[in-house]
Amino acid sequence: MTDTSDLIGIDTLLTPEELVVREKVRGFVDSDIKPNIAGWYERAEFPLEIVPRMAELGLLGMHIKGYGCPGRSSVEYGLAALELEAGDSGLRTFVSVQGSLAMSAIAKHGSEEQKLEWLPRMAAGTAIGCFGLTEPSAGSDPGNMLTFAKRDGDDWILNGSKRWIGLASVAQVAIIWAMTDDGVRGFVVPTGTPGFKATPIEQKLSMRASIQCDIELTDIRLPASAMLPNAKGLRGPFECLNEARYGIIWGAMGAARDSFLTARDYSQQRMQFGKPLAGYQLTQEKLVNMALEINKGTLLALQLGRLKDAGVLQPHQISVGKLNNCREAIKICRDARAMLGGNGITLDYSPLRHANNLESVRTYEGTDEVHTLILGNHITGIPAFR
C-alpha cells in the first residue's frame, strides 16, 4: 500500500539511519507478519518462530547499550514499534515486554552478575522474559500489591499472584515485584524455580496473537542475589513502565496508519451507486480526519523521542503521548472498520483487529483515567487520585 498518510513531510525530520531502521522493520512486517497475522489472531497463537528474526533485526532490548544489546536511539526504537504495531499490537507487545520491561528492569536496576547472566541471551532471543507487577486486585494501584517477600535467613520466600503478565508461560525469567517489610522490591526469578506457575488467559477478545498469563507464586525460595539491588519502592517498576509507555505512543500510530490505508484502498475499489466510495464527500472527510490525527500523533511521538534521546523527557510528557495517541488510534480504527461495512468484521481486513487490540493497549501501562490524573496533577499541582 502506498502511504499517503504523511501529509506534511514527516520523513524529512528523520535521519538516514532512522529511515533505514524503519524500512528494515517495515519489510519484516510486510513479509513475515501481515501474510500470517489473521491466522495467528484467529487461533490465538503467538508465533515463537519469529523471535529469532526479531533478534536478528536488533529489536530485543533495542534501546539498551552493552551486554550484547543493540544500543539504538529512542527514535529508532519508536519507529520500530510503529512498524511492528502496523502488523499487530500483540507482536509489538512482545518486543515491549521483552525489552522495555524485563530487560530494562535488569539493565536499570540489576547487579552486574544479573546483567551478564540474562541480557545477552535476552537480546539474542534465546531467553524470554516477563514482568510481574499487576495483580488481580492491584492494576492501577500497585502500591497495594499483596504479593509479599519475606526474609528467611539469607534467602527470600515469595508468595502471591500476578495477572495479565505477558509471555509468562513461555518465559525463562520473570521480574517479580513484591512488597517486603522494607517496601516494594524486585526479584529476578527463573521460571523453573519450584513454586512458579504461569497459566495463559484464554477466551480473549483482544490481543489474541499474544500471550497473557496468571502467575501463582507459592513459597518460592530465592537467594539474596535474586533481588534487583538498585530498585527500591515503586519508582523501580515505574521507570520500566515509562519505557513501555513510550513505545506505545509510537505503536498506536502504526495500528492507526494501517487501518487508514486499508480503508483508503477499500474505498477506492468499492463501488456504490455508480462510483467508488472514495468519490463521496463523507468518505473523503473521514479519510482526511484520520490522516490529520496520524500526522499529529506521529509528530508528538517524534518530539517525545527527541526529548528522550536528549535525556530530558519528563513522565507527564509520556502521559500526554500515551493518552492522546491511544485515544485517537482506537477512533481511527473504529471509523476505518465502519467504512468497510459488513466486510470489516472479518479478518480479511485489519481495522477491527487493530481496534480490538487497542482496547488492551489503551488499558495497560496506565488507563486513560490514570494518565488524565497524572496530567491533571501536573497542570494544577493537586493530586486527585483519591
Rank of each mutant, 00 (worst) to 15 (best):
K115H: 06
G90D: 05
S100I: 01
G87T: 13
A105E: 02
I50L: 04
E49Q: 14
A55T: 06
S100N: 11
G143L: 12
E83M: 15
S89P: 00
E49N: 11
S89G: 14
Q98W: 08
Q98T: 02
G110C: 06
R92F: 12
A124L: 08
A81I: 11
M122D: 02
L48Q: 14
E76F: 07
L79I: 06
R43L: 12
L59Y: 10
A105R: 03
G90V: 11
T134W: 14
P52H: 09
E85N: 14
L119T: 03
F131V: 04
D88F: 10
A44G: 10
D141T: 14
G58K: 07
A55R: 09
E45M: 11
V97C: 07
L60R: 10
R43C: 03
S73H: 06
L84V: 07
S137V: 09
W118F: 15
P142S: 02
Y41S: 02
A138H: 14
M122Q: 10
A124N: 11
M62C: 12
G129Q: 08
V95G: 00
L59D: 04
P70A: 05
E45H: 15
L79Q: 09
K65F: 04
M62P: 00
F46G: 00
T126C: 07
P142C: 02
S74C: 11
G58S: 07
V75N: 03
K108D: 13
I64D: 05
Q98E: 13
T134L: 11
E49I: 01
G68D: 04
L59I: 05
A105C: 04
Y67N: 09
S89T: 12
K115C: 09
E49M: 06
A127Q: 02
G90N: 05
F94K: 02
C130V: 03
G58I: 08
A86G: 13
K65Q: 10
K65C: 00
I106P: 00
G139F: 15
L119S: 03
A105M: 07
I128F: 04
E112F: 13
E117M: 14
G125N: 08
P136K: 03
L79A: 07
G125W: 12
G71D: 09
E83D: 12
S73R: 06
S73I: 05
V95I: 01
L57A: 04
H63L: 05
G71H: 12
S74A: 15
L101N: 12
P47W: 02
E56L: 00
G99C: 08
S100E: 11
T93R: 09
S74D: 08
M62N: 03
G110K: 13
G78K: 11
A44W: 06
M103W: 09
G110P: 04
L101H: 13
S137P: 00
I64N: 04
E56D: 12
A124H: 06
K108R: 15
G90S: 05
A124P: 02
L84C: 05
E135H: 01
S137Q: 10
G90K: 09
A124Y: 05
E113M: 07
R53W: 01
